[in-house]
Write a protein that binds this DNA or RNA. Sequence first.
DNA 1: TATGAATGAGGGTTCATTCAT
DNA 2: AATGAATGAACCCTCATTCAT
Lengths: 181, 181, 181, 181
Amino acid sequence: MRADARRNRARVLAAAEAVFQEAGAAATTEQIARRAGVGIGTVFRHFPTKSDLLHAIITDSLERLTVRVTELESHGDPATAFYDFFTELVRQAGEKHGVMALLAQTGEAPAVHKPIDAWRATVERLLARAQAAGAVRPDVGGDDVLALLLGLCQTAVTTGWDDTRCRAVLRVVFDGLAARH
Amino acid sequence: MRADARRNRARVLAAAEAVFQEAGAAATTEQIARRAGVGIGTVFRHFPTKSDLLHAIITDSLERLTVRVTELESHGDPATAFYDFFTELVRQAGEKHGVMALLAQTGEAPAVHKPIDAWRATVERLLARAQAAGAVRPDVGGDDVLALLLGLCQTAVTTGWDDTRCRAVLRVVFDGLAARH
Amino acid sequence: MRADARRNRARVLAAAEAVFQEAGAAATTEQIARRAGVGIGTVFRHFPTKSDLLHAIITDSLERLTVRVTELESHGDPATAFYDFFTELVRQAGEKHGVMALLAQTGEAPAVHKPIDAWRATVERLLARAQAAGAVRPDVGGDDVLALLLGLCQTAVTTGWDDTRCRAVLRVVFDGLAARH
Amino acid sequence: MRADARRNRARVLAAAEAVFQEAGAAATTEQIARRAGVGIGTVFRHFPTKSDLLHAIITDSLERLTVRVTELESHGDPATAFYDFFTELVRQAGEKHGVMALLAQTGEAPAVHKPIDAWRATVERLLARAQAAGAVRPDVGGDDVLALLLGLCQTAVTTGWDDTRCRAVLRVVFDGLAARH
DNA sequence: TATGAATGAGGGTTCATTCAT
DNA sequence: AATGAATGAACCCTCATTCAT
């Protein structure tokens, strides 16, 4: 029965991500339950609060991202790793629409600070290596990079960037990141 | 009593901006009324729909921005005008928190397309002049600039940038915008 | 100034009748004011309560009807007077739509009992004469006739009878009223 | 829990009928909930809109009436069936006060056209048989009969007829319906 | 006196959360 | 453990009524 429960938890999580993506911040718990193919009671058994669900989604996403960073680090040179990661993230941003909206709307942002901090460390390592390799100017900090990253992701998400727009914007930002004072 | 009414309308508008800023998109009409020091009926007399209120705030803000652009254009050289405007906007973004969030997440965006479009034209003129003066690379379009602008504003707003952060991020973006090939 | 006031009172009354007719029970006091071409404050100066307005409309209508009965009585024979009045009333019923609806919906019905009672006496006299002339069966009372009258008026109003329907239904009822035991 | 739900649905329906009857069209959803002994949310779970609730009551009532017609048809001769049905309906009308009022005054009528049409066919069959048996004059149509029926029901309902009044009015109408030439 | 802006109780409806099955 | 019906606080909005001008 533990196996069933775990599968349900995963299903709900996936459904929540999908529904937030489609319906935005207005997504209801019932929509999520329906999409997951479970009763609404089951959603609440696993995530006693909508906030918990949100928290879980974020944590989950960040964990996957951390794995991805590690992968990139081990496969390529620091510069490529850094820029590829950045690009990938902005491109994928579209998938996080509703979650971001909800985060912005509820006072939940503090609740996800911990997972974000964990992830931040990873990103900072990525940046440090790229800087050590001379691929990124030395006068930007991890927070600046994260700020840029978040900003572009949010807008990508909000205004629905296509590939051309992505490329154009990233070219500017990357040139800026690579610039010597 | 026309005078009173006008004063109240302004009060409500200001209160709405403030409350959206503090409470995010979840702000209640009642909170706004309370903050404005009027009854809830008064809010609805002036803005029959929450959406109308939102629309009014956006229009109002964009109008002020347009005025500002014109000012900058007439006082300085194209490069300074462009970069100052960009900077100013991102800095002020913090004051528009809730509104931006609302814009980004509700289905209300279409309702404000007209003021946004009007404003876009103004920004494009600013850019064109800066490019003609050689202060901005020629391979970025108005939409790219707006995308960057919106992205940074949103994040500034969402994550509460202070001045230092603003400066750091803008330095990177400006270097990117100024970069040759 | 008294003349202005009286004219306004009449205007409001007429507007109210018209608006109730068009908008039904959902008519707002503001619609009435607008239609009367006065401010909403003026409506309330003359009729401190919506209920008062309703009451005034009913009283007004019933007074006009009483006048009409007297006219018919003095001009024709009792049978014609009775049947013409009945016919006329049902035909005109369409004009009372909203008022009837409001009466039915609010608990105001008791408030108009007095004017109705006054009118009832008039109708009963009409009936008595028609019965004395042998034109209406003797075993129906004034209340029965009023009940029939009201029933047909209401339905005429509610379901929008045309002339053909009016005629067909009245033929049946008149035959019933004329029938010997 | 399907059983509980069904019981609650029925309770709400019954409560709604009762409350509409007492409070008229102005009946509040909360009054209904209170009367049904359930939370307001339950009312909305079963009838997502006040209009839906209305629709359900009408449909329900008409269905019961259709059943009753069929019963009468199979048990007695056409004349008795017709007149008994007519009598029964007007007598029961007192129990449908609010619903009739609602039907008569809101824009909801269109929503219940289908059940009404179905029922009309039934009544027309009843009439046709009574006419074939010579119990009803041949020059009245189904619509005329329905008009009379509705008118009497509405008034019965609006003005609270007792049995004596019912009998007196119906005697007149029945004589009219039976009249030759 | 006339005006119309301001008021706020109250209505319909939604949805996170609880709880009986 | 899973279900989904029940709950009710809270939301947006309306409109009769009041009151400052």
